[in-house]
Design a protein around this nucleic acid. Structure first.
Lengths: 219, 219
DNA sequence: CTTGACAGTGAACAAGTTTTCATAGAACAT
DNA sequence: ATGTTCTATGAAAACTTGTTCACTGTCAAG
């Protein structure tokens, strides 16, 4: 996989975050405005690059229509969580969506062939202790084993303002990961609950998608 | 909340499914094609109705851009599990009855069979499709701590034929308890996952209410 | 019978959006 | 020096999409 440039990375992150927040993709003009481009074609070029590099799939001619190609993990694979729904195969739903989240985002999705690891998938609210925008994620990797969150577990994420020490789902450098949030003065970074993993210092941007409120384990 | 007509429900479901599958919303013409409308305005009217009834929120001026208003389960609903319909609907989360608490320590009476609450769990948490009779129990006591099931946890119980070694919710001597099921030849008894607790040998009868498939913990 | 709500057709329009074309500076390897 | 790649501008073309308008039919309530 070709490396992404910083700008491409940032644009991809923005697109993912946009879907996570709004449940629909940004238009080229939305991206243009966000990054203060003077021309839509600047964005267009980046999108072409992202598609050429295989991380983004555009639907020709359709507005606000994309698919995310799951990013390949490096050997030092961090714990990456994948949204319950818009996953590749494993689980019914998405999304959100969706979470896929779409699905997605959004309430009530299952099963998805498309992958979208930035889509919020609200659980239909019935329980009073869960926010309507909560969504579920499946955990991959073992970077949180000291917090007793293991590979294959399902984590329920709720949006909100994270405090120091909260375990959060965060979008950092293009990957969604589950880590403990550390706030030290002006410094903010992510910490794995596993001695073998280094801290994650955000280089470009850090987007907190929600706080892990509970974890579900298969017996 | 106003009732949705059949067509409106179908369109809303289609839209949700579309997002779940593609990660982006359908255009009006996509919907038109799906339902064989001769005019886009037919769809337009339905979308207006969906928005007026408060289940869908359109983003003015933006293409393929919507938000779903989470549908709240009615309190009077006796339905325990919501399944995805045959192709039309796709639901990621199903709700299970909350059947009170269960003693993981010394046997204790269950709080009758009264349903206290309904919680929603991801389908993936246990099997791909949960048995319709699944229910949730809150754990009290510490007799299963070696199996990492602690006081305050919530376990999802599914009816079924328990195998040796399964953790089961059992009615023994008139009390419901959570223990590991041991089958040794003709002998069947319950074993706590805590050295401080003795085995439970059934004196009169032993009724297995279900198998614990997954456990949910607050973080 | 009439009224009104609901559902739909068919055509056209306006805005949103993607895509193409022409051009150009900066960084960089050859 | 020279060509290539990446990034970007500016404008326009082409297509997609949401929206509006005029009109028709159905069905139940008044």
């Amino acid at each position: 996989m070709e490396e992404l440039t910083k700008k491409q990375r940032a644009i991809l992150d923005y697109m993912k975050a946009h879907v996570a927040e709004h449940t629909y993709w940004p238009s080229i003009r939305d991206i243009q405005a966000k990054f203060r481009f003077a021309s839509t074609n600047a964005v267009f070029g980046h999108l072409q690059a992202l598609e050429r590099k295989g991380v983004l799939q555009r639907i020709p001619g359709a507005a606000r229509a994309y698919k995310i190609v799951p990013e390949v993990l490096s050997d030092t694979s961090e714990t990456v969580i994948r949204y319950e729904g818009p996953g590749d195969d494993a689980i019914a739903f998405e999304s959100v969506k969706f979470a896929g989240s779409i699905a997605a985002g959004f309430p009530d999705y299952t099963e998805s062939s498309g992958v979208l690891d930035a889509m919020q998938v609200p659980i239909s609210a019935s329980s009073r202790r869960r926010a309507p925008e909560a969504f579920a994620l499946r955990v991959r990797g073992d970077s949180m084993i000291d917090a007793d969150i293991n590979d294959g577990d399902t984590v329920i994420i709720e949006p909100g303002s994270p405090k120091h020490g909260d375990i959060v789902a965060a979008l950092i450098d293009g990957e969604t990961t589950l880590k403990r949030l550390i706030k030290q003065g002006s410094k903010v970074y992510l910490k794995a609950e596993n001695q073998n993993y280094p801290d994650l210092i955000p280089t470009t941007s850090l987007t907190i998608q929600g706080i892990a409120k509970s974890v579900m384990k298969r017996i």
